[in-house]
Design a protein around this nucleic acid. Structure first.
Length: 721
DNA sequence: CATCACGCTGTTTTT
DNA sequence: CAGCGTGATG
């Protein structure tokens, strides 16, 4: 029997014991929001509600899984049967069964962001703009335009006019492109992330009998992170819940940081209007951070424009003020962070108690080099996506072409792997496949002209695809067979073949956890592995966490570093000119700092310097960019301002004179001397090529996978490959 | 079809 | 600075 009264504070208890009717819980950071949800699941199950009738919608699938695991441990193992997941995974589950009502095949393919970009890109020529001199956005920007228009339910033309003034002349073409894209998806049986939720809502709105069936099936709805939902998702909640009205939404308007994908925290304010009888409960007691940290975060949020007023407090006594540390330059900042961590380790802290947070994934590159040099193990969340690397996409394309023969993106991808087949020929073959409709076995009978070599390759591909079509094939077997076929291509294309091969073997391992090929492929798109850890499973026993703020949501550490890096115009220009962007920056800062339990350290490089790419001079530091401007005005009672000790650091990093290799013609004699052009391997960055010798200890290396290409590196962390 | 030189442009976060 | 698109060449 669970002792709810002992485990929960009065507000939490009220939320947990309100089992029916609409309920809005405004839960500040660290106020036991997750705990409340877990106990409520337990309570519902304890009161005899069928676990499968409970729908727990969270922001990531992992979050749902963890909550249900904890509920199961706490109360009843049956809590694991609760239907949990993201809006997208719910939509996917339902659409797999009912997409045919909408004129889709139930065998549709879910495409990810990069597929979307590729399709949009491939449709550009159809707009016939080549000689008009019109400025056309890049594929990534095009995808953002389409996605945001879809999520905000605004015509593409209008969205471009409103949010991309630099592309105003393109707006009308963007609208045309959007229609071409929609037609393309229909024709090829594809749905992107946005389609999933849009079509789910369409099902609910336009098919009352199905809506009723689903609403009855999910008699109790709980939505976490409600501030991050968009209007479409809010509609889905409304349609599913408007009959039984057992809807609990939990969120914190101050933590809304997803407006870039259409999220609107005003959904929180809307909820009581949609459900007028809703109870509203505020959780303001914080169980995570010390008071000085909360004073800091409250001070940041005080000046926010529109919000549910709430003020975090704690009963935790003591604790130091957040430190704002000027580290002069970015390399020095990395050294400062590493040294501070080392000192903490000396005082008995463990690495797993510490996290370093930053805004964008590449902001940690400099730090990663320093960590590697110091031998500190870390796991990084956010940023580079395993799923988006070319070799993974290539392999999956084979599987997807088999699962959905209409998927021309995948067909194009696998056909173009064959030397001698490019854009034109692959188009031809795809068209032919579509017309004859005889499936993969017919590939070798393609009537077009091609050299013997290409024919043979096509025959081999056809053989593979036929094998993949066998009904009883297991996902891991399928991956293995594809790897056998694809391996030789891979070896030819990349000089870092061994590493990529290893990735693909990992993929085979992941596949072995699934029974059905389709399920495996779908889950990879809907729930892509976000860090290398997810792939390897085994973790080192102690490790530091590096994370983007977005990926750090819902997590906590004893010590949190927030680092800024030198950057040109972003976020300064936009953040300082766009009031909405300023507010989002503010909330980002709030999310980042409320992850800290005991110590919060904010670092910024302040040195006046030229932009690394040669832009005009500008000043880094508090006030100069979006994040730091919130910190600069705070009085010393709230934060302590410091300068990092840089006596030794300076020495290390100010040696500017280019160092000449003693003898450029001599083959480096067996040890650590590198030459430009040497291929090297780095523990964090993988393979790279030496481009320049900087001094006795440092070389510049060109890394293939790093967004920022040139980096200084100590010899000791490199080895030749 | 593949490769190279040239010119233009410049935001990041995730399902 | 470096990625990306374009247009010319092999």
């Amino acid at each position: 029997m669970i002792q709810y009264e002992k485990a929960l504070n009065p507000k939490q208890l009220e939320a947990v014991t309100t089992l029916s009717g609409p309920l809005l819980v405004i839960a500040g950071a660290g106020s036991g929001k997750t705990r409340t949800l877990i106990y409520r699941v337990a309570r519902l199950v304890e009161h005899g509600v069928d676990p499968q009738a409970i729908l727990l919608l969270t922001f990531t699938r992992k979050a749902a899984q963890e909550m249900l695991d904890r509920a199961a441990q706490l109360a009843d193992p049956r809590c694991r049967l609760v239907s949990g997941g993201t809006f997208h995974s719910l939509a996917h589950r339902i659409l797999r069964a009912h997409a045919s009502i909408l004129g889709f095949s139930n065998g549709f393919t879910v495409i990810d962001r990069s597929d979307m970009e590729e399709i949009l890109h491939s449709l550009l020529p159809d707009l016939s703009l080549s000689n008009t001199g019109l400025r056309v956005p890049k594929r990534g920007t095009l995808a953002s335009m389409m996605s945001k228009a879809a999520n905000l339910e605004v015509p593409v033309e209008q969205l471009v006019a409103d949010e991309y003034p630099q592309f105003i002349d393109f707006a009308v073409h963007a609208g045309r492109l959007g229609r071409l894209y929609a037609r393309y998806k229909k024709k090829n049986q594809l749905m992107d992330y946005d389609d999933l939720i849009i079509y789910l809502r369409a099902l609910l709105m336009e098919h009352p009998e199905l809506r009723q069936r689903l609403a009855r099936r999910y008699g109790y709805i709980m939505v976490d992170e409600y501030q991050d939902t968009n209007r479409i998702q809010a509609h889905i909640v409304k349609w599913l819940g408007h009959e039984h009205r057992n809807v609990m939404v939990v969120g914190d308007d101050s933590q809304s940081i997803y407006s870039f994908r259409g999220a609107d925290y005003r959904n929180m304010f809307q909820f009581p209007k949609e459900f007028p009888e809703a109870r509203i409960i505020k959780l303001e007691e914080n169980y995570r951070s010390t008071q000085p940290i909360l004073t800091f975060t409250n001070a940041i949020m005080e000046r926010a424009k529109e919000r549910y007023t709430k003020c975090l407090f704690t009963r935790r006594e003591g604790g130091a003020k957040p430190r704002v540390v000027n580290t002069l330059t970015e390399p020095e900042q990395a050294v400062f962070v590493v040294r501070t961590i080392q000192e903490m380790l000396g005082r008995g802290r463990r690495l797993r108690d510490v996290a370093v947070l930053f805004r964008a994934a590449y902001h940690s590159f400099e730090l990663e080099l320093e960590l590697a040099r110091a031998g500190i193990r870390y796991v990084k969340y956010g940023g580079f996506k395993f799923m988006e690397s070319a070799h993974i996409k290539d392999l999956l394309a084979h599987l997807r072409a088999v699962l959905n023969p209409d998927d021309a993106v995948s067909w194009g991808r696998i056909l173009r792997l064959i030397p001698g087949i490019g854009r034109a020929k692959s188009q031809d073959i795809i068209e032919w496949i579509r017309q004859t409709g005889t499936g993969p076995s017919a590939l070798k009978e393609w009537p077009g002209r091609a050299p013997e070599k290409v024919r043979n390759a096509l025959a081999q591909l056809s053989e593979l695809l036929v094998k993949l079509t066998q009904r009883d094939i297991t996902p891991s077997k399928a991956v293995e067979m594809t790897l056998e076929y694809y391996g030789p291509f891979l070896e030819q294309m990349y000089d870092d073949y061994p590493r990529r091969r290893k990735d693909l073997e990992q993929l085979a391992l992941m596949a072995s956890r699934y029974q059905r090929l389709r399920k495996f492929v779908d889950e990879l798109v809907l729930d892509p592995p976000t860090s290398s850890v997810d792939l390897t499973q085994g973790l080192p026993d102690d490790f530091l966490t590096l994370s983007t703020v977005h990926s750090a949501k819902g997590l906590e550490w004893s010590v949190v570093f927030i680092i800024w890096v030198m950057e040109g115009r972003f976020p300064s220009a936009k953040a300082l000119n766009d009031p909405l962007a300023v507010e989002e920056e503010r909330r980002l800062m709030y999310v980042a700092s409320t992850r800290a339990k005991d110590e919060l350290i904010l670092c910024y490089p302040s040195k006046e310097d030229s932009h690394p790419w040669g832009y005009e001079h500008y000043l880094y530091g508090p006030g100069s960019n979006g994040l730091s401007s919130f910190v600069s005005g705070l009085p010393p009672e709230i934060v302590s301002y410091e300068n990092a000790d840089r006596v030794h650091v300076r020495e290390e990093f100010t040696r500017q004179s280019p160092w000449q290799h003693p003898d450029p013609t001599a083959a480096s004699a067996g040890d650590s001397d590198f030459m430009p052009g040497d291929k090297v391997e780095h523990p964090a960055f993988g393979p790279g090529v030496v481009s320049k010798l900087v001094d006795r200890e440092k070389v510049e290396v060109l890394f293939r996978n790093a967004g920022r290409k040139l980096l200084h590196l100590a010899y000791t962390t490199l080895h030749r490959i």
